[in-house]
């Protein structure tokens, strides 16, 4: 895949050209965006559609543990859960991936070998991204060498907010070059970008630089994925494919804890980007506690009885 779609080759020629392009994107109608996201959140999804949505959501989860206290044992337990989310019901789909820190990637790769569940590793001095470029690149190399199938990088929000878009762009290019065959997810940390206009600019910047996925947030700040900022990013990938033919994935992460929320996001995907994105190759949830709620809802649908937290694993 070319690192920059040909249609936009001019846009990334220089810092001023890139700024001109990003600032030339149409401004976001904040009220309209939030109203649209809220309106799509009122859809009622029941019975067979709900069962389909729950299974789809489970298959889209990047089951995540990003704690200072992560141990190899915890990563292995999480991997076992990703492969077999509900031991009482073997028809439950597997999650898409397990998401860990680079030093745990090898443990996760070993635990998931042959299961089809991918290993995603955060990198580039996650979550702050405040490190020198070669440190970030070494971080990425480590994760790729450990066998990670996907790399979740954070952008340099400081440079982005200071208007040094080309620096951010070149950094993503450099990281992408280190990824090899691993897919690259670019995290914008939307909670730190302040405005919807900035989120739209960051989305385009990431897509121009060759991101395979654009991802809302790290889950480490107060405001993480919201329906509105995810909708905005879904519009960006839809428009990008219309103009370049290149499809890019979206991953909201952080703060999505209930099945109801997850289904609302799936409605957004279907209504905005379209059915092509209703697949775990193109849409993911970065979450950990969400899986338990989905499993409880799944048990309710299959048994008719309300389930409880005693019937899912604590992780």
């Amino acid at each position: 895949m070319p690192t920059t779609a040909p249609a936009f080759a001019d846009a990334t020629a220089s810092d001023s050209a890139l700024r001109r392009f990003l600032h030339g994107l149409p401004g976001v109608d904040a009220v309209g965006l939030e109203a649209r996201a809220a309106a799509l959140g009122t859809r009622s999804i029941k019975t067979t559609a709900k069962a389909y949505a729950i299974d789809l959501a489970i298959s889209m989860i990047d089951l995540t543990t990003l704690e200072g206290a992560d141990t190899p044992g915890k990563v292995r337990a999480l991997a076992a859960k990703a492969v077999n989310p509900d031991p009482t019901d073997r028809t439950t789909p597997r999650t898409a991936a397990v998401c860990v820190y680079p030093d745990m990637a090898a443990t996760a790769v070993a635990a998931l070998a042959g299961s089809g569940v991918k290993v995603a590793s955060v990198a580039t001095a996650f979550p702050a991204g405040r490190a020198a470029l070669d440190v970030k690149l070494a971080d990425v190399r480590d994760a790729v060498a450990a066998g990670a199938d996907e790399i979740d990088m954070v952008i340099d929000r400081g440079a982005f907010l200071a208007g040094r878009y080309l620096k951010v762009y070149e950094e993503i290019l450099a990281v992408k070059a280190e990824c090899g065959s691993a897919r690259l997810k670019v995290i914008f940390e939307t909670g730190e970008l302040s405005t919807y206009d900035n989120i739209r600019r960051a989305s385009w910047l990431g897509m121009l630089a060759g991101a395979d996925f654009i991802k809302t947030s790290t889950g480490k700040v107060a405001t993480n994925a919201t329906p509105a900022n995810t909708l905005l990013m879904l519009e960006a990938v839809r428009d990008f494919r219309e103009q370049t033919g290149v499809q890019i994935g979206v991953k909201p992460a952080g703060g999505i804890r209930t099945s109801k929320d997850a289904i609302k996001f799936l409605v957004l995907v279907n209504e905005t980007a379209g059915e092509d994105w209703l697949d775990n190759h193109w849409f993911r949830f970065g979450a950990s506690s969400l899986l338990n709620d989905l499993l409880m809802q799944r048990q309710k649908l299959s048994t008719g009885r309300y389930s409880g937290p005693d019937y899912v694993t604590v992780d």
């Binding site: 009885r305 309300y306 409880g308 937290p309 005693d310």
Partner: peptide, 9 residues
């Protein structure tokens, strides 16, 4: 009935 069959009660 839903309360009596609820697994978390």
């Amino acid at each position: 009935l839903p309360l009596a069959s609820h697994q978390d009660v």
